[in-house]
Design a protein around this nucleic acid. Structure first.
Lengths: 122, 122
DNA sequence: GTTATTGTGTCGAGGTCTTGATACAAAACC
DNA sequence: GGTTTTGTATCAAGACCTCGACACAATAAC
């Protein structure tokens, strides 16, 4: 498999492991990395991203604890399930959107209109 | 003014200053903290959040560099302008949500229902 | 059984961040 | 002018993270 598209910005105040973890979650939730897909080895991804292997291992381990990934000594790391906090990625995305909309003080109607505008705009 | 609603989670891999900064951006973009509004003093917000003053100062300084805030020795820190990167945060959030929904193959109706469910869930 | 693959664990070094405290300076207020 | 308010700067200590390297262990392949 080709290396997933992950980018790490070391100056943005977000820990490298967290960035890797977050972007893996997106790739998995979005179907780019489907269940059953094999991730690059820790050493490979670390080399690709210019990180230490332990840092990538941290990200993988976070997702393993969540049940998103499974790891094996020979077969490496494989996508096991969609993120458990988001068994339904659409619902998860909506939850995040609604959280943002709420913090912006938007009403339900305003949030719905914003979504409609983007579906129509396409 | 009352203290803005800011929460800091020290274990999520995102630096405290970054969390403060991000949440201030949301409050400002959403109009909760309108242009001209005065923010709590660095010491006050630090005490409220259980952080060191220097950490809050870092967040304020980041936003000052971006022109979002202006600071003065006596009048404190004031909202100067909306974040230039997000002129319309609700629309941006909706765009992101729709992009994810689309990648999941969701129809407009499904996306709207997902949003409604989270607003009703409260 | 041997070899290769891959994750886990450990190590010491270095760097960064955060803390709490303090001092100073600028500005506003009285 | 004196006082108060508030941001900036500095400090040392502590905590934590990341690095690169290495060793070990588990597993699969041959």
């Amino acid at each position: 498999m080709t290396a997933p598209r992950i980018v790490v910005d070391v100056e943005n105040g977000v820990a490298p492991w967290r960035q890797v973890r977050d972007q893996l979650v997106r790739l998995i939730s979005g179907g780019v990395l489907p269940v059953g897909a094999r991730l690059p080895t820790i050493r490979q991804l670390a080399a690709d991203l210019g990180l230490a292997a332990g840092t990538v291992a941290r990200a993988y381990r976070e997702l393993e604890v969540e049940g998103v990934l499974t790891t094996g000594r020979r077969q490496g790391t494989v996508v096991a399930a969609l993120p458990s906090h988001a068994p339904d990625p659409l619902s998860a995305a909506a939850a995040e959107f609604v959280a943002v909309a709420r913090s912006l003080g938007a009403s339900e109607g305003e949030a719905l209109n914003a979504v409609r505008a983007h579906y129509l705009g396409e």
